Structure formats: structure tokens, C-alpha cells
Simulated assay, not measured.
Amino acid sequence: MILAAGCLLWRRSPSGEGIELALVYRPKWADWSHPKGKLKRGEGAQEAAVREVLEETGMTCELGTELPTVRYLVEGRPKEVRYWAAKAIHGSFEPSREVSAIAWLPPAATRHRLTSARDRELVDALLSALRASGDLR
């Protein structure tokens, strides 16, 4: 089993209306996705999620509610990715070989930009969690 963790990174929209989510573009896979990555030896899932957000987006974050876990096959091997809602605190993006671009988009645009259907389903889970916590009004 490949173990990974990631976040649906969000911030308040600069306009003050609603929120935006961060998506990363990974040239190796030619896809737009939520920041995520494999756990390192001895690393917990929450620790890995925060590290991956920082490495892929340049942002520090505050973890919130755990979101649904996603399971799928990668080259015939099972992969499990645990996700959390994560509020962006501060930082700035620097392109790398792994992630060449980042996009901050409102939820509806996020759904359209995401490459994988399983990533789109997580957007609804995030919005429900933010409503329940009072972070989304």
C-alpha cells in the first residue's frame, strides 16, 4: 500500500467574497490536483500533509477537519491518500521541477480545473466541513 497525505488548501478571497482553493500543476503527470505526496519513513499523515503543502505551494497552513480518504490503484498498486482541510497562513510559491504552477480559484472554477474526478468530489467535502465549522458563511 502506498500511503500519502494532502490538503485542500484554502484562503479567503482577496475580494472578501467567499474562498479560493489552491491547485498545483504537476508537469510529470500533466495534471492539476490538490497538494499531496507520499509519507516519508516514520512520518505521520498530518505531518506529511503539512510538509507537502509547504513543499508544493510555499504556504504554511493550519490543519482543519479531516476529509474523506481517497483510494485508487497506481500501476497496479493500491494507494491511500488522507486529506485535510487546511487554511493558508502565509508564504509564496516558487516553481519547481515537481510543481510548475499554482492557481488560486473559487470552488466552482476549482472543480473545472481539476484533472481527476476523485479530486472534484473532495471540494464538496471541504465546503461542507467549512460550513459546519463556521469558516464558510
Rank of each mutant, 00 (worst) to 15 (best):
V24S: 10
A117Q: 15
S116I: 03
V70R: 09
P95S: 06
V81F: 07
R120S: 08
H112A: 14
L8I: 14
L63A: 11
W104I: 01
R111W: 02
Y72C: 02
T110Q: 02
K79M: 14
A132I: 03
A85G: 12
S33G: 04
H90L: 07
A4Q: 14
A88H: 03
L54C: 10
P78R: 13
A129W: 00
D31V: 13
V70Y: 00
E47F: 06
D124M: 00
R120Y: 08
L23D: 05
L54A: 13
S96C: 07
I19G: 02
P78W: 06
K28Y: 13
S15Y: 03
V70I: 12
P14C: 13
V53F: 09
F93A: 04
R120H: 10
R131M: 12
G18I: 08
L23Y: 06
P78G: 01
R120M: 12
P106E: 12
E55D: 13
V50Q: 09
A109C: 00
L136M: 10
E121L: 15
L105F: 01
P14I: 12
P27V: 11
Y25L: 11
P107M: 07
V70H: 02
E121D: 15
Y83T: 02
S133Y: 08
T60P: 00
V50M: 04
K40N: 11
M1I: 11
I2R: 12
A86T: 05
A132R: 13
S15W: 05
L114S: 07
E55L: 15
S128K: 12
T65D: 11
V53C: 14
R11S: 05
A103S: 12
G16K: 01
V99A: 04
A48F: 09
W84L: 04
Y83Q: 01
D119H: 15
S92W: 08
A132N: 05
G134E: 08
C61R: 01
L21D: 06
E47R: 04
R12C: 10
Y83H: 03
L136G: 09
G18D: 09
V50C: 03
E66M: 07
E20F: 03
I19C: 08
V99Q: 00
A5W: 01
L114C: 09
E43F: 07
E43Y: 05
C61F: 11
L8T: 01
M1F: 11
G16F: 05
D119C: 10
E52Y: 10
W84Q: 04
K87V: 10
L136E: 06
E80D: 02
A45P: 03
K40P: 00
V81C: 12
P35K: 10
L105N: 00
K28I: 11
G76C: 12
A129P: 00
F93C: 08
I89N: 09
A86S: 03
V50S: 09
K79I: 03
G16P: 09
I102K: 06
A4W: 04
H90N: 07
R120I: 13
R51G: 06
R71I: 11
I2W: 13
I2E: 11
L54Q: 13
A30W: 02
E52R: 15
E98S: 11
G91N: 03
E121N: 11
K36F: 09
W32T: 05
C7A: 14
Q46D: 09
G18W: 04
E55Y: 14
G91S: 05
V70C: 00
R71G: 05
E55V: 13
M1K: 08
E43V: 02
